[in-house]
Amino acid sequence: MKFRSKIIDIGCLNNFTRVVTTISKLTKTCVLRLTPDNLYFVLSGKVANGGVGMWCELSQANFFDEFQLEGVSVKANEVCLELAPENLSRALRTAQNAKAVKIKLTKKHCPCLTVAAELPTMSSMSRVVTHDIPVDVIPRRLWNDFQEPSMPDFDVSIYMPPLKIMKNVVDRMKNLSNFLVIEANMNGEMNLKIETDLVSVTTHFKDLGNPPWGGDGSQHSQGDQETMVQARVDVRKLQQFLMGQQFNPSKAMCNIVQNSILHLILLYEDVSLQYFIPAVA
């Protein structure tokens, strides 16, 4: 098992840092899957995580100038690690003006992901800072838990309103209730609602547009298009997602399975982040 990589371009470093920082805002620990072509940050939707799942996919070629991976075996050419993304984010943030950053798998006191940054100095010698991030190597028999989640068979799919506006709305709603109902239809309308004994608040968004998923939208009749599909979710989980994201995504989509799951997708160039929030009764 070997992994070593290098980022020289400062723009790539910034983007990669943004991705990792976003991940770190969403979860304390996650699994990093490394394959020869891609990196994945995975949180499987287990009860321990409150049912929240995450899948973030990056193509290594877009970030790394060097990327060498020797997986567990030739057949399973992958490395699967559990780590605290906050550590990786912190390490990368200290390296923002670095000349080069190397990320490699090392065996120190324990298995570590070592981030070594060459920082500029006034003197002729450059300054090297290394961060050893302890990781748990996930044995192969557990890999199945960290496969790409299948796209849920959603009832509605809609583009999200600007995330900043949505965040402002959700931030305020959070003060009134612990649960938020998000509902949308195939006619580009989305509502965010809270209902308590004292007050009901709804924010309406319209003309958001619906993503064309394979063009099977035609099967919906006019009546279907206006039918609202809803999911009641923990408002904090939605807020966490809206607050933490530093993607400035080019596309943000939301899929809802009636009373079952809220599936959020952010796309930025070729980084994709999927986030699953379970609906509560």
């Binding site: 006191h109 100095t121 003197s123 002729s124 010698m125 300054r127 800072v129 290394t130």
Partner: peptide
């Protein structure tokens, strides 16, 4: 804590 904490090391040369 050793297996949990991130260890950071920074090396400065004398001419700094």
């Amino acid at each position: 804590e050793l297996s949990k904490a991130m260890l950071t090391e920074l090396c400065l040369s004398s001419d700094e």
